[in-house]
Structures are given as structure tokens and as C-alpha cells.
């Protein structure tokens, strides 16, 4: 099976908020867990520059899509957990619609019917 190459920086930056919201939609998580889930579930297609993860988390928090709170963890130091707000859920739905339309458009252009791709 052919393993796709990781996405370029710019594309990753643009999609990071969508990926973050998608993962956090499943429950409260802290930064490292979010990065790990994205990496694992994308089959290393998104092997982020985790450098774009924290700015994305903090911007989503500033926009009101996420709320963060420090909590003691069972092992190790306290961690900053992120939870999605209603505004975040709306934003995730919008982003998914946009992404679906965008990827379908790309597919229609780049992979015309009968191309076998």
C-alpha cells in the first residue's frame, strides 16, 4: 500500500483548526493528546509541525470556539484541557461543509470521471 506523503506546511496550517475541532469534539483533551490523535488517526499524513497546534488552540480559544482549564492529572504535572463550546460546534459544522465542498471541487477538477484515480 502506498503511504501518502505528509501535507505541506501551508495546507496543514489552514486545516489545523478543523482537525483540532474535530478531535476535541469527541471530548476534553490536552495539547499533547490532541497532537497524538491527529497524528495517529491520519496515518501520519498529518505529522504536524506541532508548532501550529498551540497557536491554533489559543486562537480558537480567543474566538470563543474552545474553553480551556487547568486540571491536575492523575500522573505528572497539571495540564491544560480544552473543551468545545457551542460556538465551536457551529464553527466545526461550517468548516466541515466548506471542506466537503472544497475537496469535492478539487476532486472534480483533478480527478475527472473515468480517470481511474
Amino acid at each position: 500500500m502506498k503511504v501518502p506523503r505528509p501535507l505541506g506546511d501551508e495546507l496543514q496550517k489552514g486545516t489545523t483548526p478543523l482537525l483540532v475541532l474535530s478531535v476535541i469534539g469527541e471530548g476534553e483533551l490536552y495539547g499533547y493528546e490532541i497532537a497524538k490523535r491527529i497524528r495517529e488517526r491520519s496515518g501520519d499524513t498529518f505529522s504536524p509541525s506541532e508548532g501550529s497546534l498551540y497557536p491554533a488552540l489559543h486562537r480558537l480559544e480567543a474566538d470563543g470556539a474552545l474553553v480551556a482549564s487547568w486540571r491536575e492529572s492523575e500522573r505528572g504535572p497539571r495540564r491544560r484541557y480544552y473543551r468545545m463550546t457551542e460556538a465551536g460546534q457551529r464553527r466545526l459544522a461550517e468548516s466541515l461543509d466548506q471542506w466537503t465542498a472544497f475537496s469535492a471541487g478539487i476532486a472534480r477538477i483533478a480527478l475527472p470521471e473515468g480517470s481511474g484515480g
Partner: peptide, 22 residues
């Protein structure tokens, strides 16, 4: 290496906090 250069990370984090709305 996954986090990238510290200066770039600091700049991005600063921009994320210092939004026009704030």
C-alpha cells in the same frame, strides 16, 4: 523538531493571543 523553531512558535502564539478583537 515537531514544535519547530522557537522564534516562529513564539510569534504564532503571540499573534494568537493578541487578536484585533482583544
Amino acid at each position: 523538531s515537531r514544535l519547530g523553531p522557537p522564534a516562529a512558535l513564539a510569534r504564532s502564539l503571540r499573534a494568537a493571543h493578541q487578536t484585533p478583537r482583544r
